[in-house]
């Protein structure tokens, strides 16, 4: 059938167009939503999180944690480090003895009072090994642990100190450096459950 009347043809085209749009607009909306959510699903958007559990204070455990933390922060990731047990000692900036009982005083004496005075976990040899390791790091212009820690706070990493450990060892908040939050396992799990990467040191 040939349509002689151009106006009629245009009118029918318009009607068909409207009808098709009406029937398919649900699909179009769905498609739009899917397209918008695609980058998030593929992880292209910077919503990645990383959490680390630090249970040691030694140089060779804490340094990699902070190097990875600073690297991850440079990737735009949200970084959380949870310090528990021996790990708490990595966050200390001084040792306080007053007000502590004999056991707490003893443990305070045996543990480092600042990341500067921390040792390596193997081949320490009464401090000779640690001294050698530190001089090798300096020769290679590797950042010191205190610098890496300051940088991580500057980059927005969240440092959480386990309050249960602090209570057990008698460590007070006055001994802990600035920029540290205090909490328990729930605070860590909240962050870890949203993280694509979790590490233990």
């Amino acid at each position: 059938m040939q349509l002689e009347n151009q106006e009629l043809k245009a009118y029918i085209d318009q009607l068909v167009e409207e009808k098709v749009n009406e029937k398919t607009h649900h699909f179009q909306d769905e498609l739009k939503k899917l397209q918008e959510s695609l980058p998030q699903n593929l992880g292209i958007q910077q919503k990645d999180k990383i959490t680390m559990l630090i249970t040691s204070f030694e140089l060779d455990k804490v340094m990699p944690a902070f190097i990875i933390a600073n690297g991850a922060a440079s990737f735009g990731m949200e970084v959380t480090l949870f310090f528990t047990l021996w790990g708490i000692n990595a966050l200390k900036e001084k040792s306080i003895y007053s007000g502590k009982n004999i056991k707490e005083k003893m443990i305070t004496m045996m543990l480092p009072s600042h990341p500067k005075t921390t040792t390596i976990s193997r081949l320490n040899m009464m401090g000779i090994g640690t001294g050698m390791m530190k001089s090798m790091m300096q020769e290679n212009n590797i950042e010191t642990l205190p610098d890496l820690m300051d940088l991580s706070i500057e980059m927005g990493s969240k440092l959480i100190a386990c309050q249960m450990t602090m209570g057990m060892m008698g460590i007070t908040t006055d001994e802990i450096r600035d920029g540290v939050e205090y909490g328990g396992v729930a605070l860590y799990i909240e962050e870890a459950s949203e993280s694509g990467v979790t590490l233990t040191f």
């Binding site: 190097i67 600073n70 690297g71 922060a73 440079s74 990737f75 950042e143």
Partner: peptide, 15 residues
């Protein structure tokens, strides 16, 4: 120059 991992990446991210 002469900076080690992760400092170049940290500096780039900051810049």
């Amino acid at each position: 120059s002469s900076l080690n991992c992760p400092m170049p990446i940290v500096k780039i991210a900051k810049a």
